[in-house]
Amino acid sequence: MSKFNLKVNGKNHEVDVDPTTPVLWVLRDHLNLIGTKYGCGVGSCGACTIHLNGRALKSCQLPVSAVGTQPITTIEGVVAEVGEMHPVQKAWLELDVAQCGYCQTGQIMAAVSLLKTKPHPTEEEIESAMSGNICRCGTYVRIKAAIQQAAKSSTK
């Protein structure tokens, strides 16, 4: 067990965990941030997607020892970052994207990160960027439409 100082969603947290603990479990078990989900543990499904330095990353593969001072943002922070709902979340609701909902926070995190680097992505760019996120219920068509809508709305 070692102590780590993490900056999550703008707040400082101290945790005392094994250095190999993936950030996913630090968030869920130690910081009570359960919006980031566990789907596979091998970096294949994307349910655990967070932002490290603003970039989408699979937290089940990131050991806490590798984080250092790099800021982490989770789904809980995406809302807080903007103060109200992020355009991506708004589009998600307007287009009624979710079915079971389990993968959706990971999808949203990946989408937010994509729009940061590519504010007006083509359909192909969306598919590429989002291919690391599985939706078992098959809401892909709506996810793509929501990302396109969010991209459009942010030109205002």
Partner: peptide, 14 residues
């Protein structure tokens, strides 16, 4: 998602 779109990885992790 680990090795990043520029292949640079994440220092110390990937």
């Amino acid at each position: 998602s680990c090795h990043m779109d520029n292949g640079a990885g994440v220092p110390g992790a990937f």
